[in-house]
């Protein structure tokens, strides 16, 4: 398997663990309030931060796996040669937007570094950190896809 493929698989595994952890946290929240009569104060914020992390990490893997929804009309109408050009153009746009996420996501993390997330006591920047990471991965994945000329998405055979 390629390096990008391995990274993508690893991202999905980490994200799946995040989803399972979020399930446990909300389950604990209900248990604490209804059974123990004492609501844990950290569960709401913790699950929200976790969701940003796993959504953006999995969304980056989605650029490698090509699971993001898109309109494929132009590509299917084009000749094979032009279809290849269209695919490369699409991946270039995705890579560019990934770089935007990297650059301005990093700026975002830096700007809010001394804001605190209530009830967790950690920096707000940690909630935004997955965006630049995801952006970098998206750009790398998109460029690799363009080079290998794999289709960006194919909803039917997912």
């Amino acid at each position: 398997m390629t390096m990008t493929g391995q990274t993508s698989n690893w991202l999905i595994r980490v994200s799946a663990a995040g989803l399972i952890a979020m399930t446990a946290i909300i389950g604990w929240q209900v248990f604490g309030r209804f059974v123990l009569g004492s609501s844990p104060s950290w569960t709401e914020q913790a699950s929200l931060v976790l969701m940003i992390w796993y959504v953006f990490l999995a969304a980056a893997a989605g650029v490698h796996e090509g699971f993001h929804i898109r309109i494929e009309l132009l590509e299917t109408m084009s000749s094979p040669r032009n279809a290849r050009r269209v695919r490369i153009a699409i991946q270039m746009f995705v890579a560019a937007f990934g770089l935007v996420l990297l650059v301005f996501g990093s700026q975002l993390v830096w700007l809010v570094r001394d804001h605190v997330i209530p009830s967790l006591g950690i920096s707000r920047g940690l909630a935004y950190l997955p965006l630049p990471i995801s952006g970098l991965l998206m750009a790398v994945f998109a460029l690799a896809q363009a080079k290998a000329d794999r289709p960006p998405a194919a909803a039917e055979d997912r």
Binding site: R33, G37, S38, S39, S41, T43, E44, Q45, S119
Partner: peptide, 11 residues
């Protein structure tokens, strides 16, 4: 919590 009730953080 200091007043003896159960605080439920909620949007």
């Amino acid at each position: 919590r200091a007043l003896g009730a159960d605080p439920v953080p909620m949007p």
